[in-house]
Design a protein around this nucleic acid. Structure first.
Lengths: 178, 178
DNA sequence: CCACTAACGCAACTGGAGTCGCATTTGACC
DNA sequence: GGTCAAATGCGACTCCAGTTGCGTTAGTGG
């Protein structure tokens, strides 16, 4: 069922994600979906909870530049692909309209940030960054410009954008501001 | 009419923004609104176009720190206020669902960025920043962490967040990365 | 093999967003 | 003030997401 949500999202995007479409794709009747989930936002929230629980491979290139760039590049690649991009877009839309989806999104990014922060912690231990650096803050600062372009300013992202975001965030961290 | 859109947005948010509500508040019949605009997304887009054309006071504190902090703080203040926050939230939701709203949002932020970039240009002229600094990129980098918290990670924003965002962006600019 | 419960399928129903046809008003121009 | 075109008001209609009641299936425990 959650696979059907994902497939439908990738295929048609948030606007095409009706309860009936998901039910058809999953081979069940729409009333079943309505009874168990109620709305598409809850479907997305449940699917997101499930994704959060699956492992995410934390990069380990040996340097903080390499790790942050890898994270930023992965995000950029998702947004470059017109199909994969539909998933985070749907999550943002759903979260802005339903409390349940908002909580799921918050938990998802909190979990991913915590994972990604490991690369910062390692870098601090290696002496690459000041000891008091806030790992989560560096992660946020790395990701923010990419999401900003996609969701706010509406500008495209590419790998160069990702690398610049990582470099800029790193500069702030090295300056001891995080 | 566009005032009615704004008032309705502040009052009920995007989900409460139906064509009928706006029509009632503006004192016209719903068919009139349907004929002239069609959907709420177009209403929001038109209202945003109108806002874009109104002037926005560019801060001029004398230092680039002061100016960027002023910009970041203004954004943070908007998001702190539960009523005013509903406006940008609605714009983002609308832009993710309608091409017309997306174009309006893009034009709006392009215009505001261009205005805000003036503080960077002045700072470069004063010798506060490296000559090759990209003004728009510094503006983006300043705003991004605030929007990221609100729309993506779901974390709260306060004035300290705004100041940190400005400082961090500035560090990258001073390092000559922008 | 037989109850018993919970989940599901199904079709009919409901409610509200959006549309349509027509009457009425506005307002510009002579 | 009279005429005409364009915009608005109005109620009825359509359409579809979401709900409800009921019959059927599946799965469990004895």
């Amino acid at each position: 069922m959650l696979d059907a949500v994902h497939a439908e999202l990738v295929h048609r995007g948030y606007l095409g994600l009706t309860v009936e479409n998901v039910a058809d794709r999953a081979g069940v009747h729409k009333t079943t979906v309505y009874r168990r989930w109620g709305t598409v936002d809850v479907l997305i929230a449940d699917a997101l909870d499930h994704t959060r629980e699956t492992d995410w491979p934390v990069p380990d290139t040996g340097t903080i530049e390499g790790d942050l760039t890898a994270i930023a590049t992965e995000i950029a690649d998702t947004f470059i692909d017109p199909e994969r991009r539909r998933v985070p877009v749907a999550i943002v839309v759903a979260a802005l309209q339903s409390t349940r989806a908002m909580e799921a999104k918050q938990a998802f990014y909190a979990a991913r940030h915590a994972e990604a922060a490991k690369v910062v912690t390692r870098a601090v231990e290696r002496g690459e960054l000041p000891p008091r650096t806030d790992p989560l803050e560096l992660v946020r600062l790395t990701c923010a410009p990419l999401y900003y372009r996609i969701f706010i300013s509406g500008e495209p992202v590419d790998r160069a954008t990702a690398e610049r975001a990582a470099e800029a965030a790193l500069a702030a961290a090295r300056a001891g501001l995080l």
